[in-house]
Design a binder for these strands. Sequence first.
DNA 1: TGATTTACCGACCGATCGGGCGGTTAATGG
DNA 2: CCATTAACCGCCCGATCGGTCGGTAAATCA
Lengths: 181, 181
Amino acid sequence: MLAAAVRLFNTRGYDATSMFDVAESLGITKSTLYHHVSGKEQLLTMAVDRALDGLFEAAEAALREESAATVRLKDLIRRSVLVLADRLEFVTLLLRVRGNTAAEQHALSRRRELDRIVTDLVKQAQAEGGVRADVDPATAARLLFGMVNSLIEWYRPDRGAPESIADTVADLAFDGLRHRA
Amino acid sequence: MLAAAVRLFNTRGYDATSMFDVAESLGITKSTLYHHVSGKEQLLTMAVDRALDGLFEAAEAALREESAATVRLKDLIRRSVLVLADRLEFVTLLLRVRGNTAAEQHALSRRRELDRIVTDLVKQAQAEGGVRADVDPATAARLLFGMVNSLIEWYRPDRGAPESIADTVADLAFDGLRHRA
DNA sequence: TGATTTACCGACCGATCGGGCGGTTAATGG
DNA sequence: CCATTAACCGCCCGATCGGTCGGTAAATCA
């Protein structure tokens, strides 16, 4: 049910999707839908929470590792890509939230916390000499996850296994496009 | 007037912004607004066209250069960042269009054409040996512009000159995060 | 000056939306 | 077998939306 709603939210947009549309796609009436969920915003909240929980688990797992910050950073990227691929539709919805309601504001603040985690990790990796120090860590973190998050715009399960995409992304992030002899 | 509308569209979302909101932010009534524009969708169309025109000009200027494909690719990235920064709000709106109306479909198809241009350029750069050949050119193009396009999520004029951001992005894209001795 | 155009407004319309209410059928459990 | 609960529906509501219309004030032009 949540999945059906999220699919509609992503294709038509959250505002443009009516509760009637959601109900219809499930073969039930709007009244019945309201018997199961408390309202439209709850569907949104459940969906973005599902996305955020996955991303936080990925981040925490990467941070827990006992390896150099540079290695943990690369792993954070890889794990994030896997979550993106696994919970594609939920993360898609999350990344489109603009913060008009209290629930959306809360989602945005959790996203900012993720941003802080990544920025800190970049900073540590720079300090230990694994990452070039001539880029602002916050800028690097944002560009990095701009690249990762772009997956929601084009990734489809038939375009390769998540693991291989994750490797490509992490590899490209660290070594760049340039050919090396 | 267009600028005011686009600003509202970006902060509250296109669907969530009423024509009354747009009129109010201009200090006029809805009727007066309709005296100047033909409808809500026209505002959208004008805005995304402004963004697309800029991006196409950037792409064509980069393609016109008489240099190696690798250099042209790097320049395309740089020029695109400059357009993003210059027409930030228009591009922001463009990148959020989901294709529900005919006008939005048209915008999406122009975006896909840009994608093709970049993919082709990556392919040429790989053929001449300037870009590593072990990544799928379409994937590389999408990740690359995922990174570039993420600017709309965080770039603010006070966060550095567009030119320096453009250099950072192009540099990171080609050489990666890794520190080199 | 008089005529025409341009900018502007208030009032209104049909459609759609999120959500609520009262009631009915189907399942469950003692 | 009966009572309780869960799943379901038709119908309705108040609010809001994009857009229209008839008309007025101000600018422009002959």
